[in-house]
Design a protein around this nucleic acid. Sequence first.
DNA 1: TACGTGTACTATGATACACAGTACACTTTA
DNA 2: TAAAGTGTACTGTGTATCATAGTACACGTA
Lengths: 123, 123
Amino acid sequence: MMAKIQHNQPLYEQLMWRIKAQVATSVLKVGDKLPSVREMALIEGLNPNTVAKAYKALEGQQVIETVAGKGTFVRQVDTVVDEKAINELRNDFNNMMIEAKRLQVTPEQLHQWIDEFYLEGQQ
Amino acid sequence: MMAKIQHNQPLYEQLMWRIKAQVATSVLKVGDKLPSVREMALIEGLNPNTVAKAYKALEGQQVIETVAGKGTFVRQVDTVVDEKAINELRNDFNNMMIEAKRLQVTPEQLHQWIDEFYLEGQQ
DNA sequence: TACGTGTACTATGATACACAGTACACTTTA
DNA sequence: TAAAGTGTACTGTGTATCATAGTACACGTA
């Protein structure tokens, strides 16, 4: 009966980010099997429907793929450039910089954040 | 009766971003008066309540200030460092880079986006 | 006084979120 | 073959948010 949204973001989106972060940092590699919908629900303390919603959305983003009756697996990175998604990213990025400027975060700091991220992801 | 949310973002938040962008690019300067709630509602094609919601949220973010009976004005930039907001920004920034990596946007491209933004804002 | 300002209400309809429960087609395993 | 585990698709419930409409009030200004 509960339905708490923390950090102003839906639970299924928060799960999506956790999974995407694991893929980006190679904690999850291509071909790796994800926990089943019901298993992940127990792990994360969520409803299986909520996990299924996250899985389906991630499949739509080409992050994972599902094989009928087998499970869900990390998908090979798509080689096709997604112009629409990149445009949305650019727009979000602009909003982020408006916010950064307001909070008096310097561009040098932003540069550093980028470098730190790509350094940690290299290992 | 309508209630269309475009771009998967509430109308009042979209308005907030437009105003914040105008402040960041100095289209709106400190002390400038914003259109009244009812006037802005006509301009943007929104309900006065929706505009009021955006104004109130922006006041909470110290972007604007309201003077009783007079109107709303662009506020002086706060000198206090908002650690909490910066931490949230950092988190959003990380998610953004996860997305960028997935879309095969290079860190060099991200660096360029930053420089372009701060260059345009200088004028 | 009259007007414009932000604000605070109540109410309605639409939508999204998260949950509970059931069911089905599929694959693998025993 | 039978059983168990997979994703998926439903229906339904409760909650919250969003956007609208309409009314009202205290305040400042002309």
